[in-house]
Design a binder for these strands. Structure first.
Lengths: 123, 123
DNA sequence: ATATTTGTACTATATATATATGACAATATT
DNA sequence: AATATTGTCATATATATATAGTACAAATAT
């Protein structure tokens, strides 16, 4: 299970920080298919925020097929994975990398900064 | 001069993204003391946002003594040096990398896919 | 002097975000 | 069967964010 943390100073909405952490948790292998997430109420208490804010994050991830919810039992990591053709994959990879680097550059980071950071988080 | 970029998908308010990029630009040496920034109107047109949003970013940075404004002539980088802590830089780098990787992973790309793609675009 | 450019200020409007509160439906527990 | 837990939904309220439009004051350019 993830150790959720919210940072009010960033200006990034709480529900979006929760979404990011779940998506990243899955990507990093910390959350696996079928695993149950904290209930909306328990996570709300834990993060000291409103239950509706947690519910909003879960709801959005359910629409994206990242989570599956069953009323009465809980919210779980979905089994579904997205599949694309090789060409689509290449285009998509290029697209998101370009977007990423242009943002990173506007913050003054170099390509090597980025690569180093990604290398680190591999371990 | 910085190449400003806004990303609406992150949920981070525009005025805050502008603030970040100016502060980081100064820290990275891309913006130097005394240098003039784009006018609120030109940057607003450039980023396709409202002039008030740019003004809000500039105003906040003026309060922080990062910028100095002279009505009629423009907005300039203050002589006062702001140095970002390594921690602040690290946090930002981490933030944008996490956002990037979580999106990339949700499309099924591996960390190596990303690193390879970035390596390629270095050349 | 006049006109232009610049930042600033204000009002109004719309949408997004977060909270508080209460209720309900589906599932699980006892 | 009764109770508790879970996600969901709805209403109301407050604040933050962004836009549109207008006007003004200070500096600059003509």
């Amino acid at each position: 299970m993830i150790d959720f943390k919210l940072d009010p100073k960033t200006g990034t909405p709480f529900y979006r920080q929760i979404i990011d952490q779940i998506r990243f948790g899955i990507a990093a292998g910390k959350l696996k298919a079928g695993e149950q997430l904290p209930t909306v109420r328990s996570l709300a208490v834990d993060l000291q925020i409103n239950l509706n804010t947690v519910a909003k994050a879960y709801r959005e991830l359910e629409i994206q097929r990242v989570l599956e919810t069953q009323q009465g039992s809980g919210t779980f990591i979905s089994e579904v994975k997205i599949s694309l053709s090789d060409k689509e994959k290449g285009n998509k990879l290029n697209e998101i990398c370009n977007e990423f680097t242009s943002i990173a550059f506007s913050y003054g980071f170099s390509m090597d900064d980025l690569i180093d950071q990604l290398q680190k988080s591999k371990k």
